[in-house]
Design a protein around this nucleic acid. Structure first.
Lengths: 223, 223
DNA sequence: TTCAACCGGAGCGATTCACTCCGTTATTTG
DNA sequence: CAAATAACGGAGTGAATCGCTCCGGTTGAA
């Protein structure tokens, strides 16, 4: 009956659109946060809503894909850090890269989507790599002893969101984004210096447990 | 014509409700962020929506009142800091208090409401007090020299929002809020230590200008 | 030239929002 | 105790926005 299937006539365009959608989703999430709408994402990508929904059956599916990509990049950053010879430089590389990554995509949607097995797996491997980074830095005496891997993970999450950049984007003040990015780097540097072994009095309270950090993947209320 | 007007029959209840509304608004803003709805605020206060709208003509009016109260507290924290003899302790007092204040109320609505003259005035006085705190700390040699008052203001804004606490509240995991608060204090302490004169390499880039920070009061896009 | 695959976006139902309107309740006064 | 009235609560309203569907138009390999 059906003739031998033809090849897709506009397949190249489809692939370009897929990349554009993922990039646009990151950009819109960075600005609009958790309220990012599919319409805004499609518009930013220069693509119709229909095309978005041909590739991803639901909004959640798109966000899950985005999450997996971001987790890959987290893991890669941690491994890059381990590959560096200097323990402090390695840790600093991971922290700064993770902050930049989380700001763009992961932070706003963490906890709003269902966790896939692939995400959990990548998360586990990433945690192990960070733990190794921290142990190595401790052993070298460059990281203050009262700081744990969970402290660092929470610090990254705290610094990932950028309220100032979000607001500037909302106001359309693109002329100031460069200055805001500079300011953000300075703040990140301050926080990093607070992690050095030479800096500071003992931290208050007790080291936080892992259960606290892993909550960021848990689904919202009615569970 | 009209007899001499009677006194309000339920005036005491009205005053209690006003306080409850302001407290509830803070609590809801801390959890729901910018999407906090008047219905949620009224419910949290144990008050009907009608009662809220008898006291404040619009949602914005309520938020403006909240902002003015918060700005008073900012200013008070800065003056308390100046009153302390130890320059570092004074600065640390202001920073930690401001973070706590911003987290609860101001940060989510900054930039979404019109700025009243009273707000601008309080903001100006507060800025001056912080500038004095920073100068004193610089003079005493306890604050790293490459940090400016704007850096500190932006650091406070960055640390004010608490994504972890927000998410835990959204999940109803009230059992973990104590642990989260402990973790937050540790992170704040790390950042504070990063400000000490003893800690760290020179900061990257150049000192941010005031125009960047003052943007947080600017209204959204269509201006 | 043909036609399957891909495109874009108007439109749908559901949801949520800020806000209004009005019957009810509670306290003060005589 | 009874009358008067300010403050009460929340169902209801219209507008806005959301995720998603559906379908007529467009493209380009065969």
């Amino acid at each position: 009956m059906t003739n031998r299937a033809r090849r897709a006539p506009r397949q190249a365009e489809a692939e370009r659109n897929d990349r554009a959608l993922l990039d646009a989703a990151r950009a819109v999430l960075a600005v609009d946060g958790a309220h990012a709408s599919v319409a805004a994402i499609a518009a930013r990508a220069g693509v119709g809503i229909g095309s978005l929904y041909r590739r991803y059956r639901t909004k959640e599916e798109l966000f899950q894909r985005l999450c997996e990509i971001a987790l890959d990049e987290y893991l890669q950053a941690a491994e890059e850090g381990l590959a560096q010879l200097d323990p402090w430089a390695g840790l600093a590389h991971y922290v700064t890269t993770a902050i930049e990554l989380g700001a763009g995509s992961l932070a706003p949607i963490a906890g709003t989507i269902e966790v896939t097995e692939g995400m959990a797996e990548k998360n586990r491997r990433s945690d192990e790599a960070v733990e190794a980074l921290v142990e190595r830095a401790h052993a070298a005496g460059v990281l203050r002893r009262d700081v744990t891997a969970v402290d660092i993970a929470l610090l990254i999450e705290q610094l990932a969101k950028s309220p100032l950049l979000e607001q500037l984007a909302r106001q359309g003040r693109t002329d100031l984004t460069e200055a805001a990015r500079n300011a953000r780097e300075r703040i990140n540097a301050i926080a990093l210096d607070g992690l050095r072994a030479t800096a500071g009095r003992p931290l208050p309270g007790h080291p936080p447990g892992y259960e606290l950090f892993s909550q960021r993947w848990a689904p919202p209320a009615g569970g």
